[in-house]
Design a protein around this nucleic acid. Structure first.
Length: 575
RNA sequence: GACCUCUUAGCUCAGCUGGUUAGAGCAUCUCACUUUUAAUGAGAGGGUCCUGGGUUCGAGUCCCAGAGGGGUCACCA
């Protein structure tokens, strides 16, 4: 499936030959000079008048050659534009090489070109550019997938294999315009959030990705090692504890678009590295944060769609604030009939079992409730909903509810049955925080391998005093999914994690020659599958001779057939 | 990590109960064509049927193992 450099397809060989031909004509296929276009495609379409002198640069995407005249599609960063090339307009003198040879023979779909000329409208009403000057900007050596779009907008022969699309996102972006749109939307979402926060005077900060203690969340980290300090370091699973230190330090609002890393499973909502926006604002609580979030997400939706509604998986999602607030207790009560209020661990465990939720002994009260919600409730919340007031046991960094001592001031924002944001009134009592960490430690001893580590320096920071603060983390990848109608996280990550591709390093022709194989034969021996001395040593002289003579016959080589003595001579150098 | 499923030309895909030299459309090459737009007409070339074993007179097809992808589940956000 993956060709090595020596085994080129027919189309690749032809393109390499064209490259040589261009140079023979004195045309450098990879010129160094800048090429300055006057317009981009959609910009030109918007301001289009007949008779404009314009220069465009882009990728040649299709050609319709009709003898002395041709039409071509050129694609730039914004869209496509039609070119009209006429032999005598492009080559007014005697020499018609630029049209007859360079354009018709040596250029291919995928090449970058620059064109200058005059705009006009064709008989069929299409905006076009009459090309008077053509510059080769970069030759493409591999054929792009042959995607075609008809008049009705139907795509034919789409480049749709997810493996190829994710591994070669550059190709995906060239031939699938909707992919580019998704990533433009992602950029717009992030920009809208950043602009909104900056307007509030909150500070964008950078905190460590390499952490000695992977804190702020419950997850398995990636571990690495620092040589100079000779200590283990972890890639961050969250940046929460660092942002809170900055609130201790006196900033009123801090935020960071944090790339987090978690060494866990991958599926259509999980990638090992993912982006969370974390925001902490002093003197606020989680009620304030809910209002802030619903307004923000309404604005973000507006910036992407021009309205506060969006379609997601065939359902209309309404992002217009305010969003419903449902307590964790009510959510579980509604969907399972179980009232978690006042129940102890044993009662919760049997309640879980009664509705078919699996449990094990390492699960504490918090985990049991979490399981109940995750299994039985989560997927019901399609429209944006704040699930509020989580049990103390599952929220070790959260302040206890002002009225309900068994609960915390925490909410998660659910959209389309998926958690998109998680926020608290932050726990700022250093003594209670220490106790909560110690409870986590006990859970760890019970076998919960995701229980939190104790970060002593963070506790010391709290002891210096942190103002009442509300903080939130928004899963940016998931938010982008919700707003771009994607059901897979891989569609909103430019380069989603994949198992590394295995590349053939190509045959080692030199090694074969050193064995005494004549240079006429080395490439054929390699092509027959014996591309290294090791591969040769695994066969026998007689077997190889038979194979190579068969290969000679099949490929009609003009070389004499091999004798057994010749082949045995190659083998004597191996052994 | 478990189960299901897929892998055939540059791309998208056919290929029946195992049986001539593995097919189609687009792409490529040759020729024709001065306003087309999934351009058109005529002709040609292009294959590690994912890899390695096995069954068989004979394997793209059946069996086993492996690689990679997708889906479902588990874990998690």
């Amino acid at each position: 499936m993956y060709l090595c450099a020596m085994q080129l397809s027919e189309q690749e060989r032809i393109r390499r030959d064209s490259l040589v031909e261009l140079r023979k004509l004195g045309i450098e296929p990879y010129p160094a000079a800048a090429f300055n276009a006057t317009h981009r495609s959609t910009e030109l379409a918007a301001s289009f008048k007949d008779g404009m002198e314009v220069t465009l640069a882009g990728r040649l995407m299709s050609r319709r050659i009709m003898g002395k005249a041709s039409f071509a599609e050129m694609q730039d960063s914004e869209g496509t534009f039609q070119l009209y090339l006429n032999r005598d307009e492009l080559c007014p003198g005697e020499d018609k090489t630029t049209y007859n040879v360079v354009f018709k023979k040596l250029l291919d779909r995928g090449d970058f070109i620059g064109v200058s000329g005059e705009t006009f409208t064709t008989q069929t009403g299409e905006q076009s550019l009459l090309v008077r000057e053509l510059t080769v900007l970069s030759k493409s050596l591999k054929p792009l997938p042959a995607v075609k779009v008809d008049d009705a907008g139907n795509t034919h022969d789409a480049f749709s294999d997810p493996e190829l699309r994710y591994r070669m996102r550059y190709v995906d972006l060239v031939v699938n315009p909707h992919v580019r749109e998704t990533f433009e939307a992602r950029s717009r979402i992030i920009r809208t959030i950043r602009e909104s926060f900056d307007q509030q005077g909150w500070l964008e900060v950078d905190t460590p990705v390499l952490q000695a203690i992977p804190g702020g969340a419950a997850a398995r980290p990636f571990k690495t090692h620092h040589n100079a300090l000779d200590i283990p370091l972890y890639l961050r699973i969250a940046n929460e504890l660092y942002l809170k230190r900055l609130i201790v330090g006196g900033f009123e609002g801090v935020y960071e678009f944090s790339r987090n890393f978690r060494n866990e499973g991958m599926d259509r909502t999980h990638n090992p590295e993912f982006t969370v926006l974390e925001l902490y604002v002093a003197y606020k609580d989680y009620h304030w944060m809910m209002e802030t979030m619903e307004n923000l997400i309404g604005d973000v939706c507006q910036s992407v769609h021009g309205k506060t509604q969006a379609t997601l998986g065939g359902q209309e999602i309404n992002f217009k604030p305010p969003y419903k607030r449902v307590t964790m207790r009510d959510a579980i009560l509604e969907h399972t009939g179980i009232d978690i209020d006042g129940k102890n661990e044993a009662e919760l465990r049997s309640a879980c079992q009664s509705v078919g939720v699996d449990t094990d002994d390492s699960m504490g009260k918090g985990k049991l409730i979490d399981e109940l919600f995750g299994e039985k409730c989560e997927h019901h919340f399609i429209q944006p909903t704040f699930i509020i007031d989580y049990p103390v046991e599952m929220s070790p960094l959260t302040k206890v509810h002002r009225d309900k001592p068994d609960y915390t001031e925490r909410f998660e924002l659910m959209i389309n049955g998926t958690e998109v944001a998680n926020a608290y009134s932050e726990l700022n009592d250093p003594i209670v925080q220490r106790e909560r960490f110690e409870e986590q430690l006990k859970l760890g001893e019970r076998g919960d391998d995701e229980a939190m580590f104790i970060d002593q320096d963070f506790l010391r920071a709290l002891e210096y005093g942190m103002p009442p603060t509300s903080g939130v983390g928004i899963g940016i990848d998931r938010l982008v999914m919700m707003l771009t109608n994607q059901t897979s996280i891989q569609e909103v990550l430019l380069f989603p994690q994949m198992r590394p591709e295995v590349f053939s390093t190509g045959p080692n022709l030199k090694a074969l020659e050193e064995l005494g194989i004549p240079s006429d034969w080395t490439e054929h021996v390699a092509a027959a599958g014996f591309d290294s001395a090791t591969a040769l040593s695994e066969t026998s002289p007689a077997g190889l001779r038979e194979k190579m003579n068969g290969y000679r016959k099949k490929n009609k080589l003009s070389l004499p057939a091999l004798s057994l003595e010749e082949v045995e001579a190659w083998f004597s150098t191996i052994h």
